[in-house]
Amino acid sequence: MPLEVNGKTYETDEEGYLANLNDWTPEVAEALAAADGETLTDNHWEVINFLREYYEEYQIAPAVRVLTKAIGKKLGKDKGNSKYLYELFPYGPAKQACKYAGLPKPTGCV
């Protein structure tokens, strides 16, 4: 199911993840979220931007445990816990946030 943003069509896989990492723009992220009925807030963006930076540095999307620890270190303990992250991304912080960040599904998420 291809995704359409501002007249441009983006290829996605059967679960809605972007097929091509380089297609990502903030507008694409908004559209991916809208397709799930979600609206992105600043709190969502903090995590999405973190994931993109993490991928740029390590070439992988981090596992939830690693993400939680790293978010806590970067954004503070009140955000580095699964309750906060699951409230933001109810379908699973790694899976759902990675999708909006245009990253492949985290390694180990089948």
């Binding site: 390590y58 070439q59 690693v66 620890k69």
Partner: peptide, 14 residues
Amino acid sequence: MKNFSKTYSALGDY
């Protein structure tokens, strides 16, 4: 090809 050597430095996080 993808340069996966960068991923080794994430192992400490894991």
